[in-house]
Design a protein around this nucleic acid. Structure first.
Lengths: 216, 216, 216, 216
DNA sequence: GATGAATGAGTGTTCATTCAT
DNA sequence: TATGAATGAACACTCATTCAT
């Protein structure tokens, strides 16, 4: 009983160990909405339900908080990349479709669009950008390129530049995800991200031209 | 460092009428590199070869300068959109290819990649974003969608969702353009933007699957 | 220079609740000495023993601080006006003398000579001036006019224009008070403010009194 | 004819020699309305129909212009003081009334209320203030005091402190003049300045006169 | 651990002053 | 003589960071 009272008097102390991640979450949302510079530590603290001083208890400065926010948001994605690379019993087409679906889902969850933040702040955080490009971007692209190459090797796809195609396949999902997070108000998108991804994949796989040369 | 090499003797009235656009250009580059908030007026002034006070002779404040920079960079693009819509004697396929090429070229010149700036700052400049979405984004997408619909109507393309396909077709060029301007150092791209665009268009037109139904 | 001698060890939280009024006091003195525009926030902060940032903890901007300073200095005077209006058992002559003495004393303490500041800045702060004229100037004049009218009604004074006489009676005290605060160095006044007020009142009373000794 | 055309093309050159005084006049009005610091040289120049550069052709800086404005406005008053001192054939009472009337008239003309400006800026311009106090204030007061003393000597007035009475007699006219120029909008005055002056003088004369009608 | 009052370096903005024309 | 584009020092205001409690 006595300890319960303490909890009621200090609601802030409900879950001490959750503090840092609460701050990180609040920070991520605000950084995403307003950009790094335009986001005030006061706002972050307020959004996280603490005071400015508390933020400094867990993060040595604003930049460290930013990096922590980006890193934390990146990690779950990294695991997913590994996952996708492993299940290799299926056909290349199937695995490609699974991979794309998986990415579309991941990006759909808000936490996803680190992409936008990184685009905005890359110039101001070179080392963080290096880390992001190496661990997220290049690995994802390489994974996709390998799946494509596997399809070519297995005779499922016509010979093509796997790297180029990987870039092409990623673009609509990534850009649309960024778009949604950026222009939701001005240009709301009626399509599901995954719907768009499948649409694109279908077209890429089959093309749209009613090509006479193919029927010959 | 100094971009001003000529007329070093008459720094005061070097080229009166060129001032505003010189400032706008310098501003655009810096806003693009560092974002709006992180760009100091001192930096812009210095990059434009003037002092802070001079900037205020032509722009009432930082926000006005930002808007002017965006607007000025947008205008040439608007004209190009009109141009593309007009030449309607060709086949849909040809016009589509021309449009894509034209866009790739425009984005490559990069006088903007306003796209990146708008993504970064949309949240902080709602009215400007409204203007951008209406005059640039939606018009471009609509133009592309119309070309696609024309191809469907003329029997060149299989029936498809023109709006979805327009989004899909734009994405790789736009995202890659943004990418180049953002991650040039960390992830330099070896492809020409136009090369990528044509590669994508080819695939979209023909598909990559060695589809049994086509050969039948 | 430093007005803060006590508690030198704990400059941070010396006396939280005293801060705003300390700042207001320092501000009032400086505004009075140099005028609004010529007074720098740095000076105010320094005079109050804090830094600029601290001033902004309590006042949203310079104008707000100015208004707060004026308002705070006005309030004690408002109470005095009410007080004077109440004690109505005495003769009009006595009450008039009491009122004048009271005003002379109040103006001498000078926590304001807000009068001078208001004269200087009226043009730049219209709403504040409205407030001052209504709550201080007009009320004071009306009170004095009523006392005079009471004297006329009771047969103590000869019929006269109470409003005009109120203005006339106030002028020497008010102007001299302003004078002292303004030209102390160039034109030091050897008279007590109250001495001058009584001197004037004697002459005016002689002038308007239906003096029994004269009729003898 | 030919020369006329030139005049039309350069309306600014109508009367070159009048420039400085036009500037001074504009400056005086603006300084009076907004105070010294709050008045921008741009505003003065614009009000005078010239550009900022032209102001610097005639005045070395803002302070010099301020001093010139004050001085120019003071000079006609100085002459009037001398004038009043001279015609000594009349009775003290008459000369006192003439002097007061003359001052009320002088202060009524807008150019008069240097008083307000000096009150506002005395702290920031000590030497100018010295000059003003010596040449205007003290001389005027001394003149008035002498007139009063003459009246006492001639038996027109009861013995009194001439300096004190001089201060008292000046106050209502001076303060009301300042008042009019300051609070015209908030507290418009229905009385003529001279009316008020005469009203006060009547009362004071009644108060100090060795009035034959009273002794009867 | 948590607070929030206080700090002060930094930045947008203004404006008196200069000077080439 | 007059201009007005350009300057740069000065100032209001902000905000990341600190620290006594």
């Amino acid at each position: 009983m006595e300890t319960e009272v303490t909890d009621i008097n200090h609601p802030r102390q409900r879950r001490k160990e959750a503090r840092p991640s609460e701050i990180v979450e609040a920070a991520l949302i605000l950084f995403h909405q307003k950009g790094y510079s335009a986001t005030k530590l006061d706002d972050i603290a307020h959004a996280a339900g603490v005071t400015k001083g508390t933020v400094y208890l867990y993060f040595s400065n604003k930049e460290a908080l930013f990096k922590a926010a980006i890193s934390e948001a990146i990690h779950p994605n990294l695991d997913k990349i590994e996952e996708l690379a492993s299940n290799s019993t299926e056909s290349a087409t199937t695995r490609l479709r699974t991979a794309i679906t998986s990415w579309a889902t991941a990006l759909n969850e808000c936490k996803g669009s680190i992409s936008k933040l990184m685009i905005s702040e890359a110039g101001n955080f070179p080392e963080l950008t290096d880390f992001y490009i190496e661990t997220v971007v290049k690995r994802s692209r390489l994974l996709l390129a390998k799946l494509i190459q596997a399809g070519v090797d297995s005779g499922e796809f016509r010979p093509t530049d796997p790297d180029l195609l990987a870039r092409v396949l990623f673009s609509p999902i990534l850009l649309t995800s960024i778009w949604q997070h950026t222009y939701a108000r001005q240009d709301p998108i009626t399509y599901e991200l995954n719907q768009l991804a499948q649409f694109h994949l279908d077209i890429v796989l089959h093309g749209i031209a009613i090509a006479p040369e193919h029927t010959l």
